[in-house]
């Protein structure tokens, strides 16, 4: 990906990338399939009632508007998980100098949202073998387009000789252009406020089906990283040594791209396509100012991410301003504070 050096390019045909009989990628894919099934079973099984019990209890105990407003409940639930998943994935991205990959994937996922809105407006559902399959689910389309873009980005990085930021720029602008094109064709009246919500983030407009998807994606991200942290950190720190240790670098690079797409889609409706990348980068950047250890940087990044989400949501509600922007600005304030305090 964007960390490809000239050396990497000459290694494109490296023999270790074509390892015969290396079963680890297959095991990871298998484990991911199990995790997808488990997350889906949780999110569409016990999650709605757990969600109700939790927020009813919280509301009865506290009684404040912060926990009793169903709109804020949706936002908090999704925000808390994004505050964990985004810095977690971001820690690897930032240290591979791939901070802007999240931005590119967010913009192309926005194209996916537009496609989803258009399809939803023209063909809300189809019948397949007697089953009604709903198509009016823009965030799911964003996920599909986001993952395809991640794979495309990885393919371009491996097969072209150009600078690594060129595919990024193409994807970022191209995805956005597709979105704008479709929205203009479909006429803004059809989509109205929903488009803006995905673009700038709109915490008050998160339907419960999106909360379910966000929670599922965040859980899946946590699970996959718990399983593959060692490989991801090894490759991030020292690609060549990782190759030598017969770790399937290309597989794990692709995996990290897909995880990024998942997190970006999960965060999009809270933060907005334009601001999502901040959550991947800023808390991690702050954590790196104050610690010498990678594992501690991950933990601190999550702590900073959570503080940003909580403070941002409360402040935005208090002053009636956009939640996504407030969260990002809180995160940047923390970053600036760590930069200054690390130097005095």
């Amino acid at each position: 990906m964007s960390t490809l050096t000239d050396d990497d390019r000459s290694f494109r045909t490296a023999v270790v990338e074509r390892l015969e009989g290396n079963r680890q990628p297959a095991l990871v894919v298998l484990a991911m399939a199990v995790m997808v099934a488990a997350s889906a079973a949780f999110v569409y099984g016990p999650f709605p009632s757990l969600y109700d019990i939790f927020w009813t209890t919280a509301c009865n105990a506290g009684g404040s508007f912060l926990v009793c407003s169903s709109l804020l409940q949706n936002g908090f639930t999704a925000g808390i998980l994004i505050g964990i998943a985004a810095p977690l994935v971001g820690a690897y991205l930032v240290n591979r100098q791939m901070a802007l990959v999240g931005d590119a994937l967010a913009h192309s996922s926005f194209g996916g949202v537009a496609i989803g809105l258009f399809i939803g407006a023209t063909l809300p559902a189809v019948e397949i073998l007697g089953l009604t399959v709903p198509l009016d689910f823009p965030l799911l389309w964003a996920l599909i387009i986001g993952i395809l873009s991640a794979l495309g980005l990885q393919y371009l990085a491996l097969t072209t000789d150009e600078y690594a930021d060129i595919p990024l720029a193409v994807l970022l602008t191209g995805g956005f252009a597709v979105g704008v094109l479709i929205i203009s064709y479909g006429d803004a009246i059809v989509f109205g406020r929903e488009v803006e919500g995905f673009l700038f983030g709109d915490i008050l407009f998160v339907p419960f089906q999106n909360v379910q998807l966000m929670v599922g994606l965040a859980l899946l991200t946590l699970g996959v990283i718990a399983l593959t942290h060692k490989q991801l950190v090894f490759i991030t720190f020292d690609r060549e040594a990782a190759r030598l240790a017969r770790i399937h670098v290309r597989f794990y690079d692709t995996l990290l791209m897909i995880l990024t797409a998942m997190v970006v889609v999960a965060a999009m409706q809270i933060l907005g396509a334009i601001l999502t990348a901040a959550m991947l980068v800023v808390p991690v950047a702050a954590a790196m100012q104050v610690t010498t250890s990678f594992n501690r940087a991950i933990v601190l990044g999550i702590v900073f991410g959570e503080i940003s989400v909580f403070a941002g949501l409360v402040l935005s509600y208090q002053y009636d301003v956009a939640a996504g922007a407030t969260i990002v600005l809180v995160a940047i304030a923390i970053y600036l504070w760590t930069v200054v305090s690390a130097r005095v």
């Binding site: 240290n95 100098q97 991030t236 720190f237 020292d238 690609r239 610690t291 250890s293 990678f294 940087a297």
Partner: peptide, 11 residues
Amino acid sequence: SSEADSRMPVT
């Protein structure tokens, strides 16, 4: 030394 070993926080 790679870029990462001069910037990345790793003990």
